[in-house]
Design a protein around this nucleic acid. Structure first.
Length: 114
DNA sequence: GAGATGACGGGCT
DNA sequence: AAGCCCGCCATCT
């Protein structure tokens, strides 16, 4: 536990980025990794979210996989919770439980925070 | 220091 | 078209 890095860990960077995702929008694991400069670290991104405490202010539910589906599927009730949270924000799912990334995917604007 | 883990992704069969 | 397999990366034990 306690990653204890004097420097912000990769996790922190992941959280920081996700905190910028506005309501009603989503991003993919691979996308987050790419934005952090590690396009192949999508798994690490998921790992970061897994370790995320529920008390966090990070909107983890806005992160889904490249297919536009919820990866928590098959992993407990988490998937239903995530889906519910997204639908409340206006993100819609199709019959297969997939989000239309073309319509809901968010990309940070140059002026946004970077 | 080495091995195992995991909310992923992409390629190949 | 669907499913299986391998690779990637950062962290944890």
């Amino acid at each position: 536990m306690a990653p204890a890095a004097d420097h912000e860990t990769f996790y922190d960077r992941v959280y920081d980025l996700i905190r910028r995702v506005p309501e009603g929008s989503v991003v993919t694991y691979g996308q987050v990794a790419a934005l952090l400069g590690a396009p192949a670290a999508s798994r690490a991104v998921g790992y970061a979210l897994r370790a995320l405490p529920s008390s966090s202010d990070v909107p983890w539910w806005r992160v889904i996989n490249a297919r536009g589906a919820i990866s928590l599927k098959g992993r407990g009730p988490g998937a239903d919770i995530q889906r519910d949270l997204l639908e409340r924000e206006g993100v819609s799912f199709d019959a297969d439980g997939v989000v239309n990334l073309r319509a809901f995917r968010w990309w940070p604007s140059v002026e946004d925070g970077r």
